[in-house]
Design a binder for these strands. Sequence first.
DNA 1: GATTTAATTCGTATTTGTACGAAATATAGT
DNA 2: ACTATATTTCGTACAAATACGAATTAAATC
Lengths: 100, 100
Amino acid sequence: MDVVDKPYTERQKLIAKFSNALANPVRVAILELLSTDKCCYHREMFSHLPIAKSTLSQHLKVLSDAGLIQGDADPPKTKYCIDTENWGLAKGLFLGFFDR
Amino acid sequence: MDVVDKPYTERQKLIAKFSNALANPVRVAILELLSTDKCCYHREMFSHLPIAKSTLSQHLKVLSDAGLIQGDADPPKTKYCIDTENWGLAKGLFLGFFDR
DNA sequence: GATTTAATTCGTATTTGTACGAAATATAGT
DNA sequence: ACTATATTTCGTACAAATACGAATTAAATC
C-alpha cells in the first residue's frame, strides 16, 4: 500500500460503521418504526417484526452501539428513540459520499 | 408479527443491500478511488490498499454484486467504474431514508 | 510454444452476524 | 413475599464475511 500507512480515514470508518448498522432489513425497519411512528418500546416493535424478542434486543444493541438510537431505560421498560445528533452526522456523511 | 406477512419491503431490502456493500472501510475506500480518481484497474487500487490482491478481488465482487460498480473485462485487465445508474438509485434511497 | 502480466478463483482459517429459547433482571402491583 | 410484565443477557448453532497464499485463466509478447 501507499508508502505511509493510515489505512483508512476516520470518515471512511464512520461511513462503514453506519452502513453496517443499516446492512440488515430488520434494522432498517426498526429505524423506520422509530422515526415515523415515534414508536419507542421493544414490545411495540416486536409486534411489527417477525423475529424473536431476544433477536430484536440484539438488533437494538447493534443500532445503539453504532450510535443511531438511544435507549432510555426505566425497567422493565426501555424507551427507544433515534439519536438525532448521530442521525444528522450519518446523513451528512452519506450525502457527501454520494454527491459526486 | 403484523397479521399478513410481507416481512420487509423491497425498499428496505435495497437499503440493506447497498448498506452492506458500504459496510467495510476497504469498500468505501475503493468507491472513493473509483469516483474521484477515475482510477479503474485492480492494479492501481491494489497500490493504494493494504490488502492482498485476492482480497481486493473479493471486495470488488461484493461491490459488483450490489450493483455499485461495473467491471469491463479485457483480459488480463479489468477496468472498473462506478455504476452510475445504481449509484443514483442508492443515493436517492439514502436521501429519502435519512430525510425525516 | 514458453513467458509475462493482470486479475480471478479456490481452498481454507478465523471472526463476526443472525437466530432462537431459556434464564435472568428489575420494577410494579397484589 | 409472590406474581406479572418488559426487556435483556446467556448459551449455542449455523451462516456469512474477511483475510491470505497458491493455483488458475487468458491474452500479449518473446
